[in-house]
Structure formats: C-alpha cells, structure tokens
C-alpha cells in the first residue's frame, strides 16, 4: 500500500456544535496512480487533501505514506492549490527554487527550476514576476514548483477551478503529459465529472453530510480520452446519477433549514 487513508474521521466544533465532516473514510492509492476525488461542494474534499498534506489533523484514524504515518507537512508531498499561491516578491524561477534552497547548491537549484519550467512550457518566463502572468501560467508555475522538489505524491485541490474552459482543456492535456513523463502518483480533487474522467485511473466519489466515500470507480479507457467518446459519456451519466442523490440531499436540507428559520 503506497498511500493508505485508514479510517479517517474529522469533526469541526463551532460554538459547541459538533459537525461531522468526514466519517470513516478509507482508501488505498497505488504508486503511479492518477486518482480523482470527486464530490459535491462542502463534502470534505479539501479537508481530506489537507490532512494528506499534513496541514491539518484527523480527529481519528491515520494516513500512511509508504507505511509512515503522516503528522506534518513535508517535501514528499507536493501541493497545488486552487489559487497558485506563488510568492509575489520572487520571480518565477525563484518561486520554483523556493523548496530547493536547503538541499542543493544555488546552481543546481537553478538548473532544476529551469528543467521543470521547461516541462510546463514556461522556460522563457523565469525572470517574470507572478503578477505579469495569466492565471493559467501561474498555475503551471505552481505545478512546476511542486514537482521540482520531487515529491512522492502530487496533491492537487481543484487546481484548474479558477480557469476558463479553453485554458482548462489545455491544462488537462499538459497535466496528462507531465504525469506520463514523471510517473508521479497524483491525488486530484475536483467537482467536475468530465475532468475526473478525462484524467484519472480511478475516481473516488464522495457523498456529503457526512462526507463518506460512496463509490470507487476504475476508468479503464485508452488515453487521451475525448469528451464525446461513447464510453466517456456513459461513465459520466453513471457518476452524475450517483451524485444527483447527494446534491438532492443538500438541497433538501437547505430547504428544511430555510423553512425553520
């Protein structure tokens, strides 16, 4: 078991009201796999991913990477957020060099940054500052930055959520290429069904209130996949049916809440 999410529960307590966000979440992710976590808004996807990153703690259960329990953030897990989170006081190259500072000489770090900027096709932008780049370019720098520290797992929390349709499609192609090239294990959070089908080997579908895994669907389709492929459309239907129940649940609760207040 490469990455093992083992009986994870998470509660938040707000003004003495206990809110079960994740209940008994279990999953095994194999090395080199591209796995999507798909679920409606608020089901706890980000919460789960940030626990894998070591940024927050589970209420109970544990997450193990190659047998070691995750307690803190570390360079073995790279994270890409919905916002690129580049440091505006550093240029693009310096941003990519940020995690390399302590482990190698400046020259090596520079070479490495160049290599990964080339991978995301931004070799010419090393000297630019983040505010001079478009959203899609910034997100590519963030991916290069996470990859440059050579993590065992790449965690991505709706990395393309803030991008327009066309840019998003281009980023899908690029990410797929990078994944093939680097053979990284990728854990990818999204609420777009088509995005998860396009990219992943496996889709973990989450339900909400409380957040649990309701299905684990392998995607055994040839890459690159097209959105108008028959099998893709079938799978999309299947998953949206699964999610519809969950979304209905949210709507029902919203209505009940509105009626009572």
């Amino acid at each position: 078991m490469f990455l093992h999410i083992d009986h994870i529960n998470k509660q938040f307590t707000n003004s003495n009201v206990v809110n079960d966000v994740l209940v008994d979440v279990n999953a095994v992710i194999n090395e080199g796999e591209f796995v999507s976590i798909l679920g409606p808004s608020g089901c706890g996807k980000s919460t789960l991913l940030s626990m894998v990153a070591g940024l927050s703690e589970a209420s109970s259960g544990q997450i193990k990477l190659e047998g070691k329990t995750i307690k803190k953030p570390g360079k073995d897990r790279g994270m890409v957020f919905q916002q690129a989170a580049l440091f505006p006081w550093l240029n693009v190259e310096e941003n990519v060099m940020f995690p390399l500072k302590k482990e190698m000489s400046k020259k090596e770090a520079k070479e490495r940054a160049r290599k990964f900027l080339q991978m995301v096709q931004l070799s010419h932008y090393g000297g630019h500052y983040p505010h001079e780049l478009s959203g899609g370019m910034q997100q590519r720098v963030a991916i290069a930055r996470a990859l440059a520290m050579n993590p065992k797992v790449l965690l991505m929390d709706e990395p393309f959520g803030a991008l327009d349709e066309q840019t998003r499609a281009r980023m899908h192609t690029e990410l797929e290429k990078i994944w093939v090239e680097t053979q990284k294990t990728i854990l990818f959070v999204t609420h777009s069904i088509s995005e998860s089908i396009k990219l992943s080997d496996r889709i973990i579908v989450m339900g909400t209130q409380p957040g649990t895994i309701i299905a684990d669907i392998p995607v055994n389709l040839q890459r690159p996949r097209q959105f108008d492929q028959k099998e893709v459309i079938q799978l999309e239907k299947k998953i949206s049916l699964l999610l519809k129940n969950e979304i209905d649940k949210v709507v029902k609760e919203e209505l009940a809440y509105a009626a009572n207040h």
Binding site: L55, M79, A85, F87, W89, F98, P99, R145, M149
Partner: peptide
Amino acid sequence: LYIRAAQTMGSRGIDLFVRVIFPA
C-alpha cells in the same frame, strides 16, 4: 495560503518567517 503553501514545501519556524511571513 502563503503560509500553507510554504509549509507543504518544508518551510517552518524561522525559515518560514524570514522567507515568507516577513516579505509578505
């Protein structure tokens, strides 16, 4: 977000302060 991003890149304590919090 800056702090979280830096933490996932192995930065904490004084390093986090000097390289992220202060410049920010």
